[in-house]
């Protein structure tokens, strides 16, 4: 990690918008206390934003949902925005996404409304400064944990955000993400589901429906989970003794409409599950606006793991696994 100077207030919040949260990679090692994982709903775009600013894996950046956020820089900063196109502007000029940009003192950075996708990630060279709570700064509003306040608060008007004073050269990350690395979140999404859990207890018809339906993303969607609307799925188990649920778990309550569980889900639950989305598919789902069609595709562990490891390898070359599958 590069040398860091004393943090100083560097950004002021002029308008907060509906939901802007500080997120590092998540809160781990505390789920047995009933504390959820938190972290970026779209890990993929979060990681790119950090990478483009030269921040190491795990550095906290801002997850901006829907838009409505306006910030002013109180000193020159190097930033990158990845993920959703929320119509962001810098002093009323469109700002390019998926690349490093200079944000000069006094300029206003504004996120307006979703154009493509739902969540944008704003990373600042050097990283935001916040005190970890239970080992992480990930903001979980419901649990009142993390964020700049330590109490899980979303950004509010008037907040002063501190940034680690980065040097002129903040890391060696590439300046621009290649075109093929920038997803089009407005397209129907194909999501990889790793079968597991109680999948054997669903009826044959329901298994056919699960994997041969264009599901519609419901507007009941947040950082806890995303509901999908489509044919009613039947499981011969209606509820189970509650058990731990992992990221991306696809649970089916008695109404037969699947709910994909995301970062802020409760740690245990008692509805039967078809399996889990791969981490990158959970990321993709987190960018889907209501009404977008999505499809579930059964995927083997090995293929999903190969894809996930190659994703991580781009951002943490030193930690790449040598294990061959």
């Amino acid at each position: 990690m590069s040398h860091r100077e004393k943090p100083q207030p560097s950004i002021q919040v002029l308008r907060a918008g509906p939901l802007a949260l500080l997120q590092d990679s998540g809160r781990f090692g505390v789920r047995h206390l009933g504390v959820t994982q938190g972290g970026p709903a779209d890990l993929y775009s979060w990681a790119w934003a950090n990478h483009l600013t030269g921040n190491p894996w795990g550095t906290a950046n801002l997850e901006i949902t829907f838009g409505g956020l306006q910030l002013v820089a109180e000193r020159d900063l190097d930033i990158a925005i990845a993920g959703a196109d929320l119509g962001a502007t810098l002093n009323n000029e469109p700002i390019p996404l998926w690349q490093r940009v200079r944000w000069k003192e006094g300029e206003v950075l504004a996120f307006v409304a979703p154009i493509n996708g739902l969540r944008a990630y704003l990373a600042v060279c050097g990283g935001f400064v916040a005190e970890p709570v239970l080992g992480s700064v990930a903001s979980v509003v419901r649990e009142e944990l993390g964020g700049f306040s330590g109490k899980g608060c979303k950004l509010a008007e008037g907040d002063q955000l501190s940034v680690h004073a980065g040097g002129k050269n903040c890391g060696q990350g590439s300046m621009q993400a290649p075109k093929e690395a920038r997803p089009d979140f407005s397209q129907p999404a194909v999501l990889d589901l790793l079968p597991g859990a109680q999948i054997a207890n669903f009826t044959g018809r329901s298994l056919f429906d699960a994997f041969n339906t264009w599901w519609q993303v419901d507007d009941r969607a947040d950082r806890m989970g995303v509901r999908l609307i489509g044919p009613k799925l039947h499981c011969n188990i209606r509820s189970l003794v509650s058990e731990g649920i992992n990221l991306g778990g696809v649970q089916v309550p008695p109404d037969g409409q699947p709910i994909v569980l995301l970062n802020d889900r409760q740690t245990i639950g008692g509805y039967p599950r078809l399996g889990s989305l791969s981490p990158l598919s959970a990321s993709r789902l987190a960018q889907c606006l209501p009404k977008l069609p999505v499809r579930l595709v059964a995927r083997g562990h090995e293929a999903a793991l190969r894809e996930y490891r190659s994703f991580r390898k781009q951002f943490e070359p030193g930690r790449a696994s040598n294990v061959m599958l």
Partner: peptide
């Protein structure tokens, strides 16, 4: 090991 979530009848190992 990332997380262990014991619950009633099961243990989730992450």
């Amino acid at each position: 090991l990332i997380d262990l979530v014991p619950s009633y009848t099961t243990l989730l190992v992450v």
